[in-house]
Design a protein around this nucleic acid. Structure first.
Lengths: 234, 234
DNA sequence: CGAGTGTTTGAGACATTTCAACGATAGTGG
DNA sequence: CCACTATCGTTGAAATGTCTCAAACACTCG
């Protein structure tokens, strides 16, 4: 635990429009943790005794099926809350969170949730909006998995990654944290083989550039066309 | 608009632990509407100028893809809120809601949301828990669609229907509103043909009984086994 | 430089979709 | 009340997208 400057989190949606006093109250019981790539913040099924805010880096939220298959629920970026099981009325965490890159996270013990919310009711409303956005995204994925073939699902997923975690470059967008073919497979409900084939085909057409755990989108517009239409775009 | 008794909604989670005065304040601006089967409450893309609570009946929430395919997002049962776009910070409804059976619903104009929440902060927390539960369910569906074959997905879906809307009978559970093969297809991401074949096969094995828009589960336990294991159960 | 991990690619197997036709049921109007 | 019609369900056969199995390749890290 270390001293925290208000400016660290002032910029984040969740705490927008709080005065200094309230912000200090929110920050008082906070804990800080540095995460190396691969570190686990909490595991599926653990008692939900904290909730979190990511300051820096990128986290991967996964669920494992009884027979060991993994599904990626989402990636968490800076400024996002996660592990808010307590706010959703859950006693345990529904998934495992692992650092996809070096990260820095805040956490509060779950006991503090009621007090924080009653001091700062906006917190509940902001969280509600955040969870609402995630619900929408989940429905988008469901719709895609139900109606689209693998190639279009991968296209949508890659575009979403580029949008959420893309660093614009002179001739394209680079996803700025390590994403493997296996990761994309676990996001789209296919196999890494299918993803590899699709990306290779795209690379031949000049849409993307591959690499080990690396995705570089050269032609976002053409990829968008491919994601929308049923038939491929030249 | 008609006079409403407090007892109508007193029993629902959302309003649990409210005193009479607060409850009356909540009910003051409410509107009531009767829905015939097939009636549309609101359509995808409509401006979100109301939010709702279902008193009685069953509603179907669907999303349509640009090319006309439908996906069923969920069914709404008595006591559930829906169309809470305003609480999630959306300007329009992300889906279309249609009555799957005769229903009775309450609605509030969206403008009232801030006032209701500030009078009754519990409302935001209750809604947060409700939305959280829906998020979990969405992730469950994503996990199933990503990792399971059609038969197991259908099994899980039928079991969920039986649980959420099942009327127990002497020798099984009857889903107490009309559900077509097409509906199940749109919930599981397959075709009605595949669903029909699966249900026919189950009927041969004595697991379920079919019928027009009718699902009767004769052996929930055996269906559960089938839903969990990869290989079929005798 | 070797070990480990991630990626590519091929060929065959397989689940599910697609296309097509028919059958059954419920509701409607004469 | 019966015929009519629309909707829903069943079933077969062929087409196909994706998975599975298998092997080799490439890069990175220690």
């Amino acid at each position: 635990m270390q001293k925290l400057d208000r400016s660290l989190i002032r910029g984040f949606d969740l705490f927008a429009a709080m005065n200094d006093e309230d912000l200090d109250a929110v920050l008082a019981p906070v804990e800080v943790r540095r995460l190396a790539k691969g570190d686990v913040v909490f595991a599926q099924g653990d008692p939900a005794d904290s909730f979190f805010l990511l300051l820096h880096g990128r986290l991967k939220v996964v669920q494992v099926t009884p027979d060991g298959q993994q599904v990626i629920v989402r990636f968490v970026g800076p400024g996002e809350v996660y592990g808010v099981a307590v706010a959703l009325g859950r006693a345990d965490y529904p998934g495992t969170v692992r650092a996809a890159a070096e990260s820095l996270t805040l956490s509060w013990r779950s006991e503090h949730w009621p007090a924080l919310v009653s001091r700062q009711p906006r917190l509940a409303l902001n969280t509600l909006q955040h969870v609402g956005a995630r619900l929408q995204e989940a429905h988008t994925r469901i719709r895609e998995m139900a109606t689209e073939e693998a190639e279009r699902r991968v296209a949508h997923t890659v575009l979403r990654l580029a949008e959420q975690a893309g660093r614009p470059t002179r001739d394209g967008i680079l996803v700025d944290f390590p994403v493997s073919r296996q990761d994309i497979a676990e996001m789209t409900g296919t196999t890494l083989h299918t993803v590899s084939r699709i990306l290779s085909a795209w690379e031949d057409r000049g849409l993307v550039e591959g690499g080990r755990q690396r995705i570089f989108v050269r032609a976002p517009d053409r990829l968008k066309v491919l994601a929308e239409r049923s038939e491929a775009a030249g």
